[in-house]
């Protein structure tokens, strides 16, 4: 396990280094002048020059790169071109909302998928299972932004149950979280259902049932518990997708998260913000992968580490 953590940490650092290098140089070779994009085409040569000097854009690219990398090590992402504020605090603020959406979406997906998976697996191809499989099939076909838009039309415009907009962490976040959750629940539901059906046909389940362990208890306490590692591994991968989905859903619901910040940064060629945003996304995905590896490792080595068989 210690080795796994060490290797994963090295991988994390390596990935972040490669991503930051790539994003830095790709942004530098793209056509267009960031100074002009920020100041406007009408800006005079003097102010453009001043801007370049202020942000070091007039220096050789290699020097800019070394400064950027050494800043990163100190968690200094530079200053935003557009408002001249340090990037890190703004990013932190925006990240909060995006994480809230992703975590909320995951909780919502789990709350739907766990009881439904157990109920469906108890009677495979029974009435509930057939219905749930049909619904999950349907939900998987629709992207989260579509579900979000239908949600807005139905619950905000028609039924007026939820406000269209809002600030902070309020009731206006219910619909986007639901849209994300509904989009991810089918994968979790199907993984759990399939795993539980397989688990339920194992010999120990027959021994437990035959000895009188009630079906509900067998499912919730034993079959589900044995399936949790594989469901958690899938959930960890899904969390990566949820982060991506949250960035998209922010556009649909006009929420000030990381996605909106990045969109406006890309449009205004605010390079430090774009670079920091991409690194943050890479960090999130690598951490999710890291978590998946650890969960899988823990589940496969379960019971293997303490002692060895004896006669």
């Amino acid at each position: 396990m210690r080795r796994l953590v060490f290797v994963s940490f090295l991988q994390l650092v390596g990935t972040l280094f490669i991503v930051s290098t790539l994003v830095f140089f790709i942004l530098r070779v793209l056509p267009g002048d960031p100074a002009r994009a920020v100041l406007g085409m009408q800006a005079n040569e003097q102010s453009v020059q001043r801007f370049r000097q202020e942000f070091g854009l007039d220096r050789p690219v290699v020097i800019q790169y070394t400064e950027w990398i050494s800043g990163l090590v100190r968690f200094d992402f530079g200053r935003s071109f557009s408002n001249r504020q340090p990037v890190a605090p703004v990013l932190g603020q925006r990240l909060g909302l995006t994480l809230f959406l992703a975590v909320g979406g995951m909780i919502c997906a789990l709350l739907l998928a766990l009881p439904m998976g157990v109920a469906a697996a108890r009677k495979p191809w029974g009435r509930f299972d057939t219905l749930a499989m049909g619904v999950s099939h349907g939900l998987m076909a629709f992207p989260e932004f579509w579900i979000g838009m239908v949600g807005i039309l139905l619950f905000s415009v028609q039924l007026k149950l939820f406000p269209l907009f809002g600030t902070g962490f309020g009731i206006h976040l219910v619909l986007p979280v639901l849209a994300l959750g509904l989009n991810r629940a089918p994968i979790l539901f199907r993984t759990l259902r399939g795993g539980l059906i397989q688990e339920s046909s194992r010999s120990y389940a027959l021994f437990f049932r035959g000895s009188g362990v009630p079906e509900r208890r067998l499912f919730w306490k034993y079959l589900l518990r044995n399936q949790l590692p594989s469901v958690s591994a899938v959930a960890a991968i899904q969390f990566g997708y949820l982060l991506g989905g949250a960035i998209i859903i922010e556009q649909v619901f006009a929420l000030p998260g990381l996605g909106r910040l990045l969109m406006s940064a890309i449009l205004s060629r605010d390079l430090p913000v774009i670079q920091a945003g991409v690194i943050l996304a890479a960090l999130a995905f690598t951490l999710v992968g890291f978590a998946t590896d650890i969960i899988t490792h823990a589940s496969t080595s379960q019971g293997m580490t303490r002692g060895k068989p004896n006669g």
């Binding site: 010999s203 000895s211 034993y222 044995n226």
Partner: peptide, 28 residues
């Protein structure tokens, strides 16, 4: 009634300790 089987390794819950098995069965 109670039953024991040919391949006990298959009929015990791989995720549950021996103690866990007894807790469950003593409850029954």
């Amino acid at each position: 009634k109670a039953m024991i089987f040919q391949d006990p390794g298959q009929f015990l819950n791989p995720g549950l300790s021996i103690e866990g098995h007894f807790k469950e069965f003593l409850k029954l």
